[in-house]
Design a protein around this nucleic acid. Sequence first.
RNA 1: GCCGGGGUGGGGUAAUGGUAUCCUUGGGGACUGUGGAUCCCUUGACCCGGGUUCGAUUCCCGGUCCCGGCCCCA
Length: 421
Amino acid sequence: MIQRPRGTRDFGPAEMHRRRKAEEAMREVCHRFGFGEVMTPTFEQSELFTLRSGQAVVDEMYVFKDKGGRDMALRPEITASVIRFFVNEMSNLPKPLKLYYVGNCFRYENPQSGRYREFFQLGAELIGNDNPETDAEVISLAVHCLRAAGLEDFHVRIGHIGVMKSLVLSEVQDPAIAGNVLRMIDKEDFDAMGDMFDANALSRNLFERITTLADVRGGKEVLDSVDDAKVQEHLRDLFEILKLHGVEDVELDLGIVRGLDYYSGMVFEIDAPRLGAEKQVMGGGSYTLSELFGGEPVFSTGFAIGIDRVMLALEAEKELPEYAPIDAFVVPTEDAMRKYAFAILSKLRSKGIRADVDLMRRSMSKSLKYASSVGARYAVIVGKEEMAKRVVTLRNMESGEQTQVPADFAAGELAKSLERM
RNA sequence: GCCGGGGUGGGGUAAUGGUAUCCUUGGGGACUGUGGAUCCCUUGACCCGGGUUCGAUUCCCGGUCCCGGCCCCA
């Protein structure tokens, strides 16, 4: 037997139905916000990702040499591809440019709850600016996507890299050490950071200011504790505009640092508290990447939603409705009626009814049983009597109620009945 | 990369050093112009490899996969 690769999943019809519904709801929101969909290759030159995220990510990527000896990688994320696309072909389009994408990504990591080797992201990038109204637009889009997917219990945290970065860089000259400090802030490992401060003779005063800042958490009332006047104003505007977007329940969290270096300004994360260790369903922020790929420097703000985690969170939140793939099952009463049944079937399908018919040459009672077990709402019984009268018998599978309707109008009658259900 | 818990038909289970129970599902039949019922027949499983043993699904080791956690998380 051939096993599915570790960390990958198969999705059956019922699950795909739920996933597509959530995905389509989020897509629709993206369009409503004026974002256009893009699609980029599933694999890219490895360099695209190492440029953005550093050489270390190679360990966690699916990398391979193609037959021409080129270093390739299955994409571990999609932002880099979108920006590459932008630099290559879209840099002259009017700004702001609003793009979104949905796709599978690959990371060679150890699977656990909410973490797979192939996973799915829906993300958006707004290219052109880094002002508060841009940030608000992007955060609002993320929040509205999650709401549209049906998620209710989630928690938005907004931070700003600039504050912590400028604080650290003001006293730490060595960029390697500064990077480590930022990393420790992100992990909230202040013990290790203390040791490091001692080892590098960094000031205790800086340490205090960092820990104080990292603790800043709360509603907009804590904005006052942001030293940097420019950042404070930026965040104040952002919170105000978010409110006008209908996004109010957000927390300021200056402890968000997001390890990697390319984020420059606002950063934000969304958690679904009902999930386990991997509870972050979305991450994003503003950054400049275009220069890195050989373009003009342009600010962008973006995010990526982990669709798999959203699905897990939805399951944790509520019973999901059952999936009924079929509206009507056409049942011939005897073998002589089978051909006629196809004619009826075809008519129903052409009118948009999700209809099916017995293909196993089963008896009438077995067919009804089958119709019942696949959750068909109606059985459409066709027999000699019906044919003679140019009618069909509609049997409501839930109530057992039966009515005869003219064969030509069966589709319309069904549609009406289905609407009522 | 590391740690813990697991792996028996498609799904869910029981037992066992001598190849396996029950339920469900699937297929067929009885009935047959009305189903979720009943009865009958039937397909189908011990994760893989090695070791111990006369014999391993069972005990031991390794691997693999699943579940959860650490690390990491673009």
